[in-house]
């Protein structure tokens, strides 16, 4: 319950944070909302020598419209995302997934950037970010670069954020007028997703014109259900057609096996939940 000792800095700018990260070396750890880091520190599953708190950098917080994008600062809390009209209007799927994350208290502290950088494959925000083709803005010593979500999630707890780099902003294309739904399945309200499906569709005259589907906890990273997306396009937004397309949900997945769900069950869930998510999105 008591973390091991560490030093602590609270830089006032991204540049200072990057500098602190470089000086801190391998054992430095960034704390954003801290809702994933602190439990790990309390159980001493990690013991960084330096913790760099991004809480003192105001420009990392906030949601703005940036042309055809909605740009969300990495330190924006789940709570603020849920209350934001721009998100609700243009990136509703993100809000729907965010609403299912943990509990109220955690949503007050936890941040979008923290969650994506942590890259837990069971985390709920990777799938919508991936499905919606978000872009990650990453700051380093030499400036910033932008990484598409498809290249951002590399492996179990591993992202494209390099050493000495910090995720500063997440940009979402606008999905104004799309239908969307996040279908989450867990053992208890507090458990993370055994499997969850993020779906957004654009329906034109009863036919699915475009579809975006992402899967949570079906591999070592969030997974784009590209096969399902393809199968949906041009299909009527009917239960039967959607269920048929959803059968392709497990293509490209590598479902983990754990106590709540062995791989075969998880794969079955992925198909069922994909059907439900898309149907709800199309509804």
């Amino acid at each position: 319950m008591i973390p091991a000792k560490f030093d602590y800095v609270k830089p006032a700018s991204v540049a200072d944070a990057v500098r602190a990260l470089r000086e801190g070396g391998d054992d430095a750890k960034i704390i954003a909302g801290g809702q994933s880091l602190l439990p790990v520190l309390r159980l001493r599953l990690a013991a960084p020598s330096l913790v760099i708190d991004l809480g003192g950098i105001p420009e990392l917080r906030g949601i703005r419209e940036d042309g055809d994008r909605i740009a969300i600062g990495a330190m924006t809390s789940y709570y603020d995302i849920l209350r934001d009209d721009l998100v609700t209007q243009h990136v509703a799927l993100l809000a729907q997934a965010t609403e299912t994350v943990a509990d109220n208290q955690v949503r007050h502290r936890g941040t979008l950037g923290g969650s994506l950088a942590h890259a837990d494959p069971a985390g709920d925000l990777g799938a919508p970010a991936l499905a919606l083709d978000a872009e990650m803005v990453i700051a380093g010593e030499t400036g910033t670069r932008t990484v598409p979500a498809a290249e951002f999630f590399v492996d179990y707890f591993t992202t494209a954020i390099g050493e000495g780099e910090i995720l500063t902003e997440i940009r979402f294309p606008k999905y104004t007028g799309w239908g969307s739904h996040y279908e989450k399945f867990n053992r208890t309200a507090q458990a993370w997703s055994m499997c969850a499906v993020a779906a957004a569709v654009r329906v034109e005259g009863g036919t699915i014109a475009e579809a975006r589907v992402g899967l949570t906890n079906m591999g070592t990273t969030p997974i784009r259900a590209a096969g399902v997306e393809q199968a949906l396009i041009g299909q009527p937004a009917s239960a039967e057609a959607i269920r048929t397309a959803a059968d392709r949900a497990t293509e490209g997945t590598a479902a983990p096996s754990d106590a709540d769900a062995a791989a075969d069950y998880r794969e079955h869930l992925a198909r069922v939940l994909t059907g439900r998510a898309v149907l709800a999105a199309a509804g």
Binding site: Q35, S36, L38, P39, V40, L43, L45, A102, D103, V106, H118, D120, P121, A122, G123, Y156, F157, R187, Q190, A191, W192, S193, M194, N217, D258, A259, D260, A261
Partner: peptide
Amino acid sequence: SPGAGLGSI
């Protein structure tokens, strides 16, 4: 199985 606080860890 992933759960509160620890996630997949």
